[in-house]
Each structure stands twice: as structure tokens, then as C-alpha cells.
Amino acid sequence: MFQLAPNHQDDIVRTAKIRFTFDGESFLAHEGETLAAALMRAKLLHIRDAPGDESPRGVFCCMGLCQECVVQVDGKTIESCRLSVSPDLHVTSLRRQLDT
């Protein structure tokens, strides 16, 4: 049947879910998806605080340019929109005050 605006949500097959941690808290993500997407699914939008005014920031340009979604993994700074979630991924945020 012709659908004007199909909903494909249920027709997408994804890899199995794995665990990763973000500031010590455990989350589920499909292996191989971007950290940006995994955090969006977890409704965790506040990824970082800006230096200076310390205002909350999150994924913005989604293509590795704006540097708003950067996190740290093993001491290295990386954009969450360019980082694939893999098993044993432990992410440290650049938030000043961690949400309690």
C-alpha cells in the first residue's frame, strides 16, 4: 500500500546492544553506532560545559566541526559524533559539575 509518510522505525535491524560507561554510569548502545546517537537514545543531551560561562552544551553540528560534543577517552579528546561505541568504552565528560 502506498504510504504518504512511512514509519520505518520497526524495519531497522541493528547490532546487539552492549554496555559503555559515561562518567561511570552504565548505558546500553548498539555496537558500532556513534556515541552521539547512543547518548541521544539515553536522553543524555548535556555532554559538556563550555569554558567561561560554563553553560551546558551538547551535540550540535553532528559532523565533527563544532567541537561542542567532545568527550575524553583514555585522556584523549574526541568528538562523540565521530566515536563508535565499542565494548569496554569508558567515556569521561568535560562537564564541570556532574549531574547528580
Partner: peptide
């Protein structure tokens, strides 16, 4: 526009 939850339109298509 700096609030988490604001994304670019091209950025949204990328996700």
C-alpha cells in the same frame, strides 16, 4: 542556541 537539544538541520540529517 547553545542549549543541548539544539542541532543544525544538516547536522540532524547526518544523525
Amino acid at each position: 542556541w547553545t542549549l543541548p537539544g539544539v542541532v543544525g538541520m544538516a547536522g540532524a540529517t547526518s544523525i
